[in-house]
Design a protein around this nucleic acid. Structure first.
Length: 587
RNA sequence: CGGGAUGUAGCGCAGCUUGGUUAGCGCGCCUCGUUCGGGACGAGGAGGCCGGCGGUUCGAAUCCGCCCAUCCCGACCA
């Protein structure tokens, strides 16, 4: 393989396009790998398209190796199957919808569960046909409310999605594990750093859903990890439950005047001024914060819900939403407060909350709020708070909920040490779907007794274009891109540093020999460019090995430089092909 | 969808406050010459509906209104 800079369709930019924020995305633009074509959509130039296809190829090889078979669906789909699964409505504004000339509804698929399910239903009807794993590499569309971060959150993107079909749970588990292992191999080969985090919370548990996150500060997902190896999406972190606390010596709860203290901050300041205690100052952790939300259920009904958390923590809306799925959470508005006179905004306390209480409103608390813990909290009267309110003595919550924010230093649920918050890019997601789509679309097979059983499914995704972006973001340096060899657009970037006939002829000869030896070469044979420009471009483009044929040639040597480490060595021309061939074999 | 910012040559920007001949600078691009191992220099060029529409005015890149687009923060993101 040989690419010549003299005719390669590329233009490197010395200056950075103003719209690009992330370092990797900037380098991709500057090096001429991609061009923005609109908000959240990109065109791929020859260099970028090579990288994309390399990533695609590795994913395809690993999927094939685990026994999955490649298929290809349309990106443009009719409404009907999505109507049947409920997603025409459920997907909301993120679904690209369009009408054809006859006025029929269509969509640009954001993912293809329905089509895979229907195709299997179309062809298969026996347990003997299963298990089956099929996949595609396909352009997906999501009308993101806010596309951002270049290739990381775009409206059109390339995705590998696969689906497994099994007759029973054990089969699904096996298919899931096979995919998981294939993903591990895939990301290892791509040289992508990753952590596997459980993506669903306690109740669903186990291996139901895991995300592969590429750790980087530019990532959008927050996860936690511990020194002992625990890792989880922040939404899935389970809070260790403390032991109950004895409270025999806690005085009776007593209401105090606390005017103008509607926030935790004002309350703590007031308590320290007017009710100082001898041993230590009051702080936010002594208070119980009660947050009201409105929960909208899928059946169209809605109810208020109060969440109690220690006052030094906020409710994490994403954790809360994950807990209440499939119901949706909305803020509790001033109008809602007017309709519910039992709730005193800013001075809400648990005495009037819970099933069987004055309001009857459901009251769930953070797991740290165990029996015997004592709190300063609202007295349900404007300008008043209650002190020494003991959980289990003075109030009883309806249950606990994992809704409080997770913080650096919180203990890991498995006792493996303090948690550290980190950010990552979601590059893969594996998911035991179960029978949701099979039921909605009536996918059944006959088992060995001739009984019809509903098939159980898994779905597994890898963001292909996102993986390219993740590699760029995690390998870019001050000089430019820095590709792992497996995905790089070439093995060797050969710079012709000089215009003499000897140098040009020597470079051409070496190039021809390298190509013959199976080395992929990007040859900078531009006669108009001075060496300095070529060196800068080579570093920007990020091919892993840079070879300079220039002034050393007179002594029979060329220069070989490692793009990542910057280490350079002179190699005798006679040994050059073998040296480079070996380099490219070892990666 | 809320908040903020920005639209002037392929890219990066100035000009706009205080309206007035031909709209400027750097990079890139074309031609010629000198240069030639770390983004050279000189000379000469090409390239613009100043985001769009409407208004004010003798006159609008500049002032006003509406719209559109892009980016950032947030909401959102199986």
């Amino acid at each position: 393989m040989l690419l010549r800079m003299s005719n390669l369709f590329v233009r490197t930019l010395r200056e950075v396009p103003a719209d690009a924020e992330l370092p990797g995305h900037r380098a991709l633009l500057r090096a001429g790998y991609v061009r923005p074509a609109g908000s959240g959509v990109h065109s791929w130039l020859p260099l970028g398209y090579r990288v994309l296809r390399n990533v695609e190829r590795i994913i395809r090889e690993e999927m094939d190796a685990m026994g999955a078979q490649e298929v290809h669906f349309p990106a443009l789909l009719p409404r009907e199957p999505y109507e049947r699964s409920g997603r025409w409505d459920d997907y909301g504004d993120n679904l690209f919808r369009l009408k054809d000339r006859r006025g029929n509804d269509h969509l640009l698929a954001p993912t293809h569960e329905e089509m895979f399910t229907l195709l299997v239903k179309d062809l298969y009807g026996s347990y003997r046909d299963l298990p089956l794993s099929i996949y595609q590499i396909q352009t997906k569309y999501r009308d993101e409310a806010r596309p951002r971060a270049g290739l990381l959150r775009s409206r059109e993107f390339l995705m590998k999605d696969s689906y497994s079909f099994d007759v029973d749970d054990a089969g699904l588990e096996a298919s899931y594990q096979a995919h998981r292992a294939a993903y591990v191999r895939t990301f290892d080969r791509l040289r992508l750093d990753y952590v596997v985090v459980s993506a669903m919370s306690g109740a669903m548990g186990g291996s139901g859903s895991e995300e592969f996150l590429c750790p980087t500060p530019v990532g959008e997902d927050t996860y936690v990890r511990s020194p002992g190896g625990y890792a989880a999406n922040a939404e899935a972190v389970v809070t260790p439950v403390p032991e109950p606390v004895p409270y025999d010596d806690v005085p009776e709860a007593h209401v105090e005047d606390t005017p103008d203290t509607p926030t935790i901050e004002t309350l703590v300041a007031f308590a320290n001024e007017h009710f100082p205690r001898p041993d230590r100052a009051w702080d936010a952790a002594d208070t119980l914060k009660n947050v009201v939300v409105m929960v909208h259920h899928p059946d169209g009904t809605h109810e208020p819900l109060v969440i109690g958390v220690p006052g030094d923590r906020d409710v994490d809306p994403r954790r809360l939403a994950a807990q209440l799925e499939p119901s949706e959470v909305a803020p509790f508005t001033d109008e809602d407060f007017e309709r519910d006179p039992g709730l005193t905004k800013g001075y809400l306390g648990p005495q009037v909350l819970g099933k069987g209480s004055a309001t009857g409103i459901r009251y769930l608390v953070d797991p740290r709020i165990v029996e015997g813990t004592r709190w300063v909290t609202g007295a349900n009267e404007h300008g008043h708070h209650v002190f020494d309110l003991v959980c289990g003595r003075d109030f009883t919550p309806d249950g606990t909920i994992e809704a409080a924010e997770v913080r650096d230093g919180d203990p890991a649920p498995d006792g493996s040490g303090p948690l550290e918050l980190a950010r990552g890019i979601e590059i893969g997601h594996i998911f035991q779907l179960g029978r949701k789509y099979a039921e909605a679309l009536d996918l059944q097979v006959q088992d060995e007794h001739g009984e019809l059983v509903t098939v159980t499914m898994g779905s597994y995704g890898i963001g292909v274009s996102r993986a390219v972006a993740a590699i760029a973001e995690t390998t870019v340096d001050d000089l430019g891109l820095c590709w792992p060899r497996v995905v790089a657009p070439a093995d060797v970037h050969l710079v012709v540093a000089g215009k003499s006939d000897d140098i040009v002829a020597g470079a051409e000869r070496l190039t021809a020999e390298l190509v013959d030896a199976g080395v992929r070469v990007l040859l900078d044979d531009r006669s108009k460019e001075r060496p300095g420009v070529k060196f800068k471009d080579a570093e920007l483009i990020g091919v892993p090995t840079i070879v300079v044929v220039g002034r050393g040639l007179a002594e029979g040597t060329i220069e070989v430089k490692d793009r990542r480490t910057g280490a350079r060595e002179d190699v005798a021309l006679a040994d050059a092909v073998e040296h480079l061939r070996r380099l490219t074999m070892t990666g």
